[in-house]
C-alpha cells in the first residue's frame, strides 16, 4: 500500500480492486488532473497522479511490470510505490503518490 504524507480524513469508493486488470491500470478523473490506479501481477494496488515526471505522460496507459510502470511516451520506468523514476532516470522528479486504501475488495481514495 502507498506510504502517504498527508493523513486523509475522508475516503471515497472509486470501484472494486477487480475492476483493474492484473498488470493494468485505470484512470479516475479529478479536478486537479486524473489519478492512475495500478494493479500489479501480484495483486497489489497503488495510486499515483497520472502524470509522468518526465513530460507528463499518462502513466495509466503504460505497461505495468513488477512493481513499476513503463511510461507510454518515452519509456521511463516509474516505481509505483514512490512515483519516482528508476534506473538511469532516478532522481529526476516524481509522480505524486495518492492516498489509497483497500477495504473488503473496494478501492478508496483519500481526501484531506
Amino acid at each position: 500500500m502507498n506510504a502517504h504524507v498527508l493523513d486523509p480524513t475522508t475516503w471515497t469508493d472509486v470501484g472494486a480492486v477487480t475492476d483493474i486488470p492484473l498488470r493494468g491500470a485505470r484512470r479516475v478523473p479529478s479536478p486537479r488532473g486524473a489519478v492512475a490506479i495500478f494493479r500489479t501481477g501480484d495483486g497489489e494496488v497503488f495510486a499515483l497522479r497520472d502524470a509522468c515526471p518526465h513530460k507528463g505522460g499518462p502513466l495509466s496507459q503504460g505497461i505495468v511490470h513488477g512493481r513499476a510502470v513503463a511510461c507510454p511516451l518515452h519509456n521511463w520506468s516509474i516505481d509505483l510505490a514512490t512515483g519516482e523514476p528508476m534506473g538511469a532516470d532516478r532522481g529526476k522528479g516524481c509522480a505524486p503518490v495518492i492516498a489509497l486504501q483497500v477495504r473488503e475488495g473496494r478501492l478508496l481514495l483519500g481526501e484531506a
Partner: peptide, 11 residues
C-alpha cells in the same frame, strides 16, 4: 475511467 469524475482532488 474507473469511476465518475471526483468532486475533490485526492491527495
Amino acid at each position: 475511467p474507473l469511476s465518475r469524475r471526483l468532486e475533490f482532488a485526492p491527495v
